[in-house]
Design a protein around this nucleic acid. Structure first.
Ligand code: MN
Ligand code: MN
Ligand code: MN
Ligand code: MN
Lengths: 224, 224
DNA sequence: AAAAATAGTTTGAATATTCAAAATAAACTG
DNA sequence: CAGTTTATTTTGAATATTCAAACTATTTTT
């Protein structure tokens, strides 16, 4: 029912709100950046989303998804992530290249096709980048993960990675980092902006810049 | 590059031109019916297609695909048919329900995804309804088949069926008719508008109306 | 050949989406 | 707090796609 454009806006609002958890409002400027559109365009479109009760709009302050908008966003996200996993698992595409394909297919797949994919993969709960696949009714549990860039030295397990940048994803897999990988943060120098990681079974330490580390979410492991 | 709308117009022009082979021009009224749009809309859009050199437009007479438009149409058709086969073969969907899905997906699949499907199915040459799957450079050979409605008594093999109507396709499979099926036309009564078919290994004769028979294309078999 | 029917085109208008540039409000700064 | 910077909104305009209704050309009937 909603147009691809509408779906993309709702998804973007959801993603930005989730980015830094519990932000009450998403600012329109952030949306303009995320969607690569001019600010005026965003204002216009948000007005229209508000009229359709998909968002709550407070001029000059920001937007928030309504219950209806949130549900809609989750459905698109479900499609997006199930498609990404399907492309990797079934079609044997690389995890670095599936995001863009999913971005288009999420607006075109039927419920039937989606159900077949779901069944074929055994009702998976996470996409190739470690993001949870939303389910029809159920809520998504608030992510207990932290950004790798914010975390003190210690042991961690890689949980989720930002899927937008193919180069970054290629580097990750080449370095042996993907969802599930365990490693220790051995040092974190804010002045140089470099963290050192010791991968489980990895010989040398792996340096990673703070910028890149912001795109990785980890789960703390006990220091056993 | 072309919008989904443009792709659908080109595909429709191609389909109508192929319907009754070698018709020099497709009339805009036919397009209006096929695409379920008003005549004025068609005129407007055809003007725009002509400006982009995708069609040759002779006002009040009709349109014809240009070389460029033809190539574009074949690409969409290739996607459509490969997707249909994929949905049947890989996703185990019913042949009666895949056309609509393919109608949307044909505008959303990437070259990479398409290549994976093609490879996965072993570079097939026909879709589930018996229609040829166009290949990159190659021409589609002029169909040597005839409409079942136009054919005299004799032995035939079912070649292609119109894929638009799910009810019709359900009836076909329930009756044991699909591409490849051999049968004899035992009688054809133009007054009642009914043909009788004797399926290979079928007990009773199968009656089929002329209207339905127009949607079936057959290949004559020697009367051995 | 005129009248009637059919097919196609024009016109005027609407919706959805987007941009550039001007105007305005809010936040920050010295 | 006045001035400056930044974020957002407004305004005016464009493109793509569609419709309804009026108009026109073509074909078919008397
Ligand atoms: Mn993605
Ligand atoms: Mn998208
Ligand atoms: Mn089809
Ligand atoms: Mn289509």
């Amino acid at each position: 029912m909603p147009s691809p454009t509408t779906e993309n806006y709702l998804k973007a609002i959801y993603a930005l709100a989730e980015r830094d958890t519990n932000r009450p409002l998403v600012r329109l400027g952030e949306l303009a950046t995320e969607l690569k559109l001019t600010p005026g365009t965003i204002t216009t479109m948000i007005r229209s989303l508000a009229e359709r009760d998909l968002v709550t709009y407070q001029p000059r302050a920001g937007v928030k998804l309504s219950a209806k908008g949130n549900q809609e966003a989750l459905q698109v996200l479900r499609r997006h992530r199930l498609i990404e996993l399907f492309l990797v698992e079934v079609m044997k595409m690389d995890w670095s290249e599936v995001h863009e394909d999913a971005e288009a297919l999420e607006h075109a797949v039927s419920d039937k096709f989606l159900a077949k994919m779901d069944e074929m993969m055994g009702y998976p709960t996470e996409d190739p980048h470690g993001d949870p696949i939303p389910v029809a009714g159920a809520e998504i549990p608030a992510s207990q993960t932290r950004k790798l860039s914010d975390v003190p030295s210690g042991n961690y397990q890689l949980s989720r990675v930002n899927d937008q940048d193919p180069e970054f994803l290629d580097w990750l897999s080449a370095s042996g980092l993907r969802p599930g990988t365990r490693f220790a943060v051995t040092s974190h120098d804010p002045r140089s902006g470099v963290l050192l990681l010791q991968l489980e079974g990895g010989a040398a330490e792996l340096p990673i810049g703070i910028g890149a580390a912001k795109n990785i979410r980890v789960k703390p492991l006990g220091t056993h």
